[in-house]
Amino acid sequence: MVESIVLSGVAIGCIYALIGIAYNVMFSASRVFSFTAGTLGMLGGILGSLFILRMGMPIWFGFILALAGGALLGVVTEIVAVRPVLKSLDQHLYVLSTLALALIVQQYTAIEWSTEPQPFPRIFDVARGGFDQQLWLPMVACAITIVGLEVLYRHTLLGHAFLAIAEDNYAARALGLPERNLRMASYALAGAIGALAGFAGGQMLLAFFANAPLLTFYGFVPVALGGMGNNRGAVVAGLILGLFQQAANFLVGGIFASVAVFTVFIIVLLARPDGLAGASVGRRV
């Protein structure tokens, strides 16, 4: 039982963590929480199934196209739902605009794709076992994303530019950095990461339009618990969430598992409003 809790919990936790990272990448570039993050995950699963199973494309090509689809939605999010409301961030209009876009994409997907869950392809043609690919694929995807983002942010000029606009976009612009292009690139990156979460978790979650609200909701928990914009915090909190959710599934089961998860979530936020890894920020008065 413990083995099952750990394997399933870490796998689903990695999917939540990836969605949390997608939230954070968009947040860092714009100070906006884009609620299209779960929709990106949903789209990764559906595009993977569409390209590989329905259209018969090779797996590697379907994978690249699915990530490209996610990146495209990321860019569209920036142009349609984020850029118009950036000047009035304090009014939090982005909540409405990003939720509206997410809803449009979700409903369009339901109409064009299917309202029933559809199968997702087996990525590797190997026999099913205890530690199946549906469990380790999200873990691998999460590990690659963490390492990739570390390399990008620490060792590349582009990554430094991303960090610069995340730190202070006015100063970055004053230094001549193309803030708008960098923001769009960040949203494209977040889109690809979100789609990767859906693709890697496709065998577990299936290609289903209703995964969007599920991932939007559960993907936000690691962000809130891990600290806004903190990727490492999101990964740790995502794993904790996955493990706790699976443990609750095993121990109390049924609908009470969700109740247990959100009870703990609320208690943690009451105790540490800035998240487990977040630090309190002083405010000038």
Partner: peptide
């Protein structure tokens, strides 16, 4: 039991 249909596991 009543279980959330979205539960993947």
């Amino acid at each position: 039991s009543n279980v959330d249909a979205a539960n993947p596991d």
